[in-house]
Computed example of a mutant assay.
Amino acid sequence: MVDYWWAPFHDAKRNEPGAALTRAPWVRLNLGYRCPEAEKPGEVDTQTNVVRPSSGSCRHCSVPVVVSRDVPQIRLLAGR
């Protein structure tokens, strides 16, 4: 479960009001780790639209780092 806090803002890059997430957002989660063998950082990701179960392995030593059995869930929080 990931909490997502949102408050109204102005998107300066697009020069328009920022948009809140919908009730069923598409989401990608990036997960950082540190390889104990290579002593280097790495990153794996998962997203809501992949077939489950899915897995991610260390880019340095190929050892499995994570298995995603369930779709990531987002709890939308709102600012006032």
Rank of each mutant, 00 (worst) to 15 (best):
P25C: 04
R80L: 13
V71Q: 03
S62H: 14
N15L: 07
P36F: 03
P72S: 01
V27H: 04
V66D: 00
P41G: 07
Y4V: 07
N49C: 08
L31H: 03
N15V: 09
P53C: 08
E43K: 13
E37L: 10
D70Y: 10
G42K: 08
H10M: 15
P72C: 07
N49R: 13
S68G: 02
T22D: 14
A19Q: 13
E39H: 14
M1P: 06
K13I: 15
R75I: 12
Y33N: 03
A38L: 01
R59A: 02
G42N: 02
P17H: 03
T22L: 07
L21I: 09
L77D: 04
Y4K: 00
R23D: 13
P17G: 05
A19M: 11
G56T: 04
N15F: 14
T22S: 15
Q47E: 13
G56S: 04
A78L: 14
T22R: 14
N15T: 12
V2R: 10
L29V: 05
R28W: 07
R59Y: 10
W26D: 09
T48M: 05
A20S: 09
S57D: 12
A7E: 15
W26T: 04
N49Q: 10
W26V: 11
L21G: 11
S57V: 13
C58Y: 00
H60V: 00
R59P: 01
F9V: 10
S57R: 14
R14K: 11
H60Q: 09
V50K: 06
A20W: 07
D45V: 00
A78R: 13
E39M: 09
C58G: 09
A38W: 07
A19F: 13
W5C: 11
T46G: 04
L29Q: 02
R52L: 08
R23H: 10
C35S: 09
T48G: 11
G18A: 15
A78W: 09
W5K: 12
L76N: 02
P53D: 05
T22C: 11
T48R: 09
G42D: 05
R28I: 07
R34F: 01
L29T: 05
S68M: 06
A12W: 14
V50D: 00
R14H: 08
W6P: 02
R80P: 15
Q47Y: 12
C35L: 08
W5Q: 13
W26M: 08
R75P: 11
T46R: 02
S68L: 06
A12P: 03
R75V: 15
N49Y: 09
G42Q: 09
P72E: 00
A24F: 04
V65S: 06
I74Q: 06
L76K: 07
T48F: 00
E39I: 07
S55E: 14
K13E: 15
R52H: 01
Q73M: 05
E43V: 10
A24T: 06
Q73N: 03
P25N: 08
A78V: 10
A38D: 10
C58F: 00
P8I: 03
C61K: 04
W5G: 14
A78F: 08
S54F: 00
R69D: 04
V44L: 05
P72K: 04
G42H: 09
L77W: 07
T46K: 04
A12T: 15
G32S: 11
E39V: 06
W26F: 15
E39D: 14
R23L: 15
D70M: 11
A38H: 05
S57I: 00
V63F: 01
V51K: 08
W6M: 02
G32Q: 12
V27S: 02
Y4D: 00
Q47L: 08
V67M: 12
N15P: 11
